[in-house]
């Protein structure tokens, strides 16, 4: 299950950024301009659609979602 989450999150991020982040799990997505604030909205919608994880936007603190690894952990914890 955990591998499945990881793969799905990486696929979503690849759709948004065009990049395969499997070997760059700890890269900061915002500092590197790979994601902007409109992309994060898209990210949340995709997580909801594909993994059934509803993240209340009012709890979306960007600093806790700024790498692929952090996003994967957040999603795994929420499931």
């Amino acid at each position: 299950m955990a591998e499945n989450i990881k793969e799905t999150v990486l696929n979503i991020l690849q759709d948004l950024t065009g990049e395969d982040l499997a070997n760059n799990l700890d890269d900061n997505l915002f500092d590197n301009a790979l994601l902007d604030s409109m992309d994060t909205v898209q990210l949340l919608l995709e997580l909801q659609d594909q993994l059934g994880v509803t993240v209340p936007v009012s709890e979306f603190d960007r600093s806790q979602w700024d790498t692929a690894a952090k996003i994967i952990k957040k999603v795994a914890d929420a499931q």
């Binding site: 604030s37 909205v41 009012s58 979306f60 603190d61 960007r62």
Partner: peptide, 10 residues
């Protein structure tokens, strides 16, 4: 503020 959704909704 708008850049950080949590702050925006606060």
């Amino acid at each position: 503020v708008t850049d950080n959704l949590m702050q925006l909704f606060a």
